[in-house]
Design a protein around this nucleic acid. Sequence first.
DNA 1: GTCGTTGCAAAGCGTTTGCAGCCTA
DNA 2: TAGGCTGCAAACGCTTTGCAACGAC
Lengths: 126, 126
Amino acid sequence: MQRKTEQRAVLKKVLKEADRPLSVQEIFEGAQSELPKIGLATVYRNIKALVEHEWLTVVDLPGESSRYEVAGKEHHHHFHCKTCDRVFEIEGCVGGSIADLTPKGFSLEFHEIILYGRCDECAESA
Amino acid sequence: MQRKTEQRAVLKKVLKEADRPLSVQEIFEGAQSELPKIGLATVYRNIKALVEHEWLTVVDLPGESSRYEVAGKEHHHHFHCKTCDRVFEIEGCVGGSIADLTPKGFSLEFHEIILYGRCDECAESA
DNA sequence: GTCGTTGCAAAGCGTTTGCAGCCTA
DNA sequence: TAGGCTGCAAACGCTTTGCAACGAC
């Protein structure tokens, strides 16, 4: 990544201002509101470049297409609200006890935990 | 699901004989070895029907296309071997301590845990 | 004979790539 | 001015769907 373009600046801004992982569509729509002519291919290309440069981290959840969050955060997991479909970061980890689940002979390298339910806003309006 | 067909019988056999969740490709290839003329669309259609009839359960892992395992098993999680790309079932659960991670105001409904690393076979040959 | 099921090919859908023109440095 | 970047459209890979023929009951 070398040149500074308006498109890339807008994409980074959208991602930085979100406090949660965003989908390609969310990023695209956020960018479009500031730069209506931006193309979807540009969004995909820049996401890929930003991931390669470790400015972005990929957040993959089961059965969902990838979401992206600004890199550099500590080890954490995610909460997926099944009502509004947004994903939130959660603090803390039960990594220690998880190691006990590893089957005999298997070697554990890392793990993923995803919580599902309702976020505070959706729980309240229910 | 009403009529009994050779295709469906073969698909169920392949799934029943596997002791782990299988991808569509794995199911397709397993079925082809017994029924070379089977079509991929038939595999997709039957998987869909078997899931709807709750004979099959969908196993979705982050960034992967769906896998399928015979339904009716107890609550369990999965181990994904990054070397051979196979997925295994693991026993046990740390559900209790996981509830503690739920953010304030959020309501937890269920959770997913995925372990990554090397399975016994791959760990041994490394 | 009815109509659920199958194989094939075409259609969908999200993501990637080719290309000519644009714009940053 | 060089060549990275962009928008558009075509290409891709996986999954679904339309359709005529097939076969279970």
